[in-house]
Design a protein around this nucleic acid. Structure first.
Length: 120
RNA sequence: AUACCGUUCCAGACAAUCGCGCUGCAUGAGUUUCAUGGGUGAGGAAAGUCCGGGCUCCACAGAGCAGGAUAACAGAUAACGUCUGCCGAAGGCGACUUCAGGGCCAGUGCAACAGAGAGAUACCGCCGUGCGUUUUGUACGGUAAGGAUGGAAAGGCGGGGUAAGAGCCCACCGGCGCGUCGGAGACGGCGCGGCCAUGUAAACCCUAUCCGGAGCAACACCCUCCGAAGCGAUAGCUUGCUCGGCUGCUUCACGGGUGGCAAAGAGCCGUGCGGCGACGUACGGCCAAGAUAGAUGAUUGUCCAAUACAGAACCCGGCUUACAGAAACGGUCGAAGA
RNA sequence: GGCCGGUUAGUCAAACGGUUAAGACGUCGCCCUCUCACGGCGAAGAUAGGAGUUCGAUUCUCCUACUGGUCA
């Protein structure tokens, strides 16, 4: 069934973010915090990324978002559907680098039991 | 090779694999769209939002007041507080750099403390006269040369003059006014003259010039909702105030989408011509991001001395601020890059 | 993204361009008390940073940083 490539879907609308913060299940790591909600659309999983303006200037925030998005993309083929995931970057994430964040995204997704199988 | 000054340019490159936005490119499915291939994809500051415009709405934008901005002169420009040239001042041996650089001889205000006195003055001192007297002194007057205070003390310095002194008089210098010559002008040279109140206008102010208000979250359209309260010629908008103008209006609550918005303009590149230059103009060529939770990343290899500051959000012209380094050209000083 | 404001001791908060920058709460020390509190006396502690104008700047001007408000 995975012959067709999955695309990366972003979360749209501010109310989904606030719902995730209030009602979502929380999984915290050293650099990131993961919020998970069940989605209406069961055929795909949405991703939202939050990097506060306190974390740095526009270049820094964009770089952190790219790292997280790329990490998430690596786990996309083995990800369960029907969820809304919001990832919030903490202050250490700014200086962590891609390798560290990628590892942490995998760890948190596994902790939240969102992976069908172990990533290769 | 090395110091210094000015101008311009670049902002890691290449290859492989995976991945992203746009596409009014092609092909195939399909006629909302999807897939594959191609094309294209952040900056010199995209930043701060400090100025100037375009654009949109208010009446294509009106009158007066208030308010704001600018400040030698001439030009460039769509416009500017920007730029160019030039004048003046300051700094540097020099190339060159810097300057909110109109007016306190229109008016008003302020100048704390100190000091006798801050725009008017006599504390000490100097001189004269009267009184007293061995002497010291004391009263009145003259005086701004000297002392002391201050950021600033009666334009500065020298000479004449005087009882002592003083622009009281004279020369030079500074400032101001008038005349004349040069210059497009600011200004500069020369001559004459009243004999001159220090500083502060980023104090009020005066002079000249300019400025209507708001901003793409503007604004226009489509679908949904067509909700509650209030007003009755009041009220609201334009504008801070007055006039003038406009309107069934005002307040509160409230979704989604499309356009605006990106292919085309004060556009970029090259060459010629005009100009000291900013710039203008003619010809030829080019089309070069357009997101909407917001697109450039990951891994590996090679080159490299090394990758700083930093991410478009309607669009331009500037200014300011941040910044590792690399390159080119022109020039200055000196015996020598010391 | 646009448009407005603000920054003074630990906190709140005054100051026509002029001596040593008010106050209040808090902090510290001493006194009072058997001890604590209350009260009394005393002390320390600040103009966001950098330039400029001025004789002199918390105040005026510019730049930078930080921090609020507001606009569908």
């Amino acid at each position: 069934m995975e012959r067709k490539k999955r695309k990366l879907h972003p979360v749209k609308g501010a109310h989904w973010f606030s719902r995730a913060y209030r009602k979502g299940q929380v999984y915290a790591g050293r650099h990131l915090v993961l919020y998970v909600l069940p989605a209406h659309d069961k055929t795909r999983t949405l991703l939202g990324i939050t990097v506060s303006k306190k974390r740095g200037k526009a270049v820094v925030r964009n770089r952190v978002k790219r790292w997280i998005r790329e990490s998430y993309r690596r786990y996309l083929p083995v990800l369960k559907n029907g969820k809304v995931i919001v990832i919030v970057a903490k202050q250490p994430a700014v200086t962590a680098g891609f390798a560290v964040l990628s590892e942490e995204v995998g760890y948190l997704l596994g902790k939240a039991t969102l992976l069908d199988e172990a990533p290769q």
